[in-house]
Design a protein around this nucleic acid. Structure first.
Length: 420
DNA sequence: TCTGGGGTCCTAGGACCC
DNA sequence: TCTGGGGTCCTAGGACCC
């Protein structure tokens, strides 16, 4: 069976959500602002037509924009998340499988639809009627092509919100009109690199030999080229993979110059990070704290980051907050005007796998194990401790072993091995 | 003691996405 | 005065081992 993927996304999603709950915004220019009302993060076509760029600082355009009759909202992520769930509930009725890719985009599997394009049009009408959110849909035999099709559907009003790239001939013609930097996965840096090789549009990229793509763009680029030429490389991810890291970062909005304010900020971040951790069912082996001054300010710059390891991986907000404050204090230096801070949790694990971190905390067992391993390996001249079926483990590089759940087993095995 | 290739782990940084 | 907040993946290079 031929695969047909769809990428459906909400038009000016945050603005559209605001319009659903406040009809006075309909047909008006609307922008939604980031945290602290710092920057513009969403604009309606009317706002775009006024020349409001994405990401522009709000204070730069505020006066002229409001004077011209523009409307503005602070972002409300709870609302957008709720609307996103409603939209996806509609997708579920139209597709066998749905991958929620971001708050406003989902990949759908429409392979079983007799006429995918007609199916997509009905779906689009239904989403609009049931949720009030306008969408665009791109269709293609791979996810990269569905993305490209979605981009074309948004750009070209005559397509009526749906673009189908499943037919190879039509595809070749349309891809030639898609600029290289509009291909999913090709950003500024890679566009420049490709331009140096004379590749400027998606059709040229699709025609590139995969080997060259790999040389110029690395493996990710090779995958993009293959998918762009219709070769299936990536399937839908129906169940989201477990998070590998969690970050909570904020700009201050006001200059921060005292340790007390900084501690309060990172404490708040740590508590929120703990909530996310528990919601995702993960635990963090360490916490990283950073803060820095404003690039935009003509003053001495400073950027610091520090880490604290936990005796056992944790998702406890109090433990996270206490550690974050200790790191913030350790890093503190007076005389700077700080603009942003954050905490990052990486190397997340399932709490059930949490074992004592013997590497970062002084533990007599660690010294004992190292002595035992040294003795064994000296005697045999090679690593004798790896259990059968486990690939060779370097005896002197213990860091990995100590953090792995296998650790306890291996510790117990030492005397046996020594007796051999 | 010197040299080199093969291999893994770790970190930093780049690039991309929304 | 005010300039977003999340994520993932890949590569290069150093350390360290046999």
């Amino acid at each position: 069976m031929k695969r047909v993927y769809a990428l459906s996304d909400g038009n000016s999603f945050y603005c559209s959500c605001e319009r659903v709950f406040d009809p006075s915004l309909i047909d008006k220019p609307v922008v939604v602002l980031s945290n602290n009302d710092g920057c513009v993060v969403a604009r309606t076509p009317e706002a775009k037509a006024m020349g409001i760029p994405m990401g522009v600082p709000w204070f730069e355009i505020r006066d002229s924009y409001l004077k011209a009759g523009g409307k503005v909202r602070s972002s409300n992520y709870a609302l957008y998340g709720d609307m996103s769930r409603r939209v996806n509930a509609v997708y579920e009725r139209f597709a066998d499988e749905v991958e929620v890719y971001s708050i406003d985009e989902s990949f759908l599997d429409l392979s079983r639809a007799p006429d995918p394009e007609a199916h997509a049009r009905v779906m689009r009408d239904t989403v609009l009627r049931w949720t009030g959110i306008p969408t665009c849909v791109g269709l293609g035999p791979t996810r990269v092509l569905a993305k490209a099709a979605n981009h074309l559907a948004k750009k070209r009003a005559e397509m009526g919100g749906v673009c189908d790239l499943t037919d190879p001939e039509r595809r070749a013609a349309l891809l030639a009109t898609l600029a290289i930097e509009d291909v999913w996965g090709i950003g500024r840096a890679l566009s420049a690199r490709l331009a140096a090789h004379g590749v400027r549009n998606a059709a040229q990229l699709a025609a590139m030999p995969p080997k060259s793509a790999r040389q110029i763009l690395s493996v990710t680029g090779e995958r993009i080229v293959l998918e762009l030429s219709g070769v299936h490389c990536s399937a839908l991810e129906i169940t989201p993979p477990a998070k590998k890291g969690i970050a909570v970062t904020r700009s201050f909005g006001r200059p921060v110059t005292t340790l007390a304010e900084m501690e309060e900020a990172v404490r708040t971040h740590a508590v929120r990070a703990g909530e996310k951790l528990r919601r995702n069912g993960r635990a963090a082996p360490h916490i990283q704290v950073f803060y820095f001054t404003s690039r935009h300010r003509n003053a001495p710059q400073r950027s610091v980051s520090g880490i604290e390891h936990f005796p056992v991986a944790t998702s406890d907000s109090m433990a996270l907050a206490a550690a974050a404050c200790r790191v913030a204090r350790r890093l503190w230096a007076d005389g700077f005007i700080y603009a942003k801070s954050g905490v990052m949790l990486e190397g997340l694990i399932d709490p059930a796998d949490a074992v004592p971190d013997l590497w970062h905390t002084p533990d007599p067992r660690r010294a004992e194990l190292m002595r035992a391993m040294d003795a064994v390996n000296m005697r045999y001249g090679r690593n004798m401790l790896a259990p059968a079926g486990v690939t060779y483990q370097r005896p002197w590089s213990l860091k990995q072993d100590l953090r792995s759940p296998r650790w306890t087993t291996r510790l117990d095995e030492v005397p046996t091995v020594m007796a051999r």
